[in-house]
């Protein structure tokens, strides 16, 4: 996390696209400043020698937690669809998908 690695406005714009957020030019500038100060504060971690330390992703070590393969009840779709912003013919309705061919 050297200075040249600190987050730039270009990074912020890229990250916003990844996160499906639209930011105004001003928001990009503000977020860049704020994220930079938070990340700079985070330099205290990189100051430590963490070589050889394994990562921890969950606080309590657990493994092999399973569910038996036994069918249970489903939910009435009308209750779910009643909360959906768009539905038609018992399905969720969305604007056209773009991920097709050019």
């Amino acid at each position: 996390m050297n200075n040249e690695n600190l987050i730039t406005e270009k990074d912020v714009a890229h990250v916003a696209a990844l996160a499906r957020l639209h930011l105004t030019t001003k928001e990009i500038a503000d977020f860049t400043t704020q994220l930079r100060s938070i990340l700079e504060h985070g330099r205290d971690i990189t100051a430590l020698d963490l070589a050889g330390i394994p990562p921890t992703s969950g606080p309590i070590p657990l493994e092999n937690v399973f569910r038996e393969d036994v069918a249970g009840s489903c939910i009435d779709k009308s209750e779910v669809l009643s909360q959906a912003p768009g539905h038609q013919e018992g399905q969720f309705l969305v604007p056209p998908l773009l991920d097709g061919s050019e």
């Binding site: 987050i7 957020l21 963490l50 990562p55």
Partner: peptide
């Protein structure tokens, strides 16, 4: 939005090890 941005950045390609990875190691400490 600020936290989503921060988190997305911390996980994004090229930054994972420096940010999220180090944070997880600190968690071990």
């Amino acid at each position: 939005k600020r936290r989503i941005m921060l988190g997305t950045y911390a996980l994004s390609a090229g930054y994972y090890d420096a940010y999220y990875g180090s944070a997880q190691k600190l968690r071990t400490l």
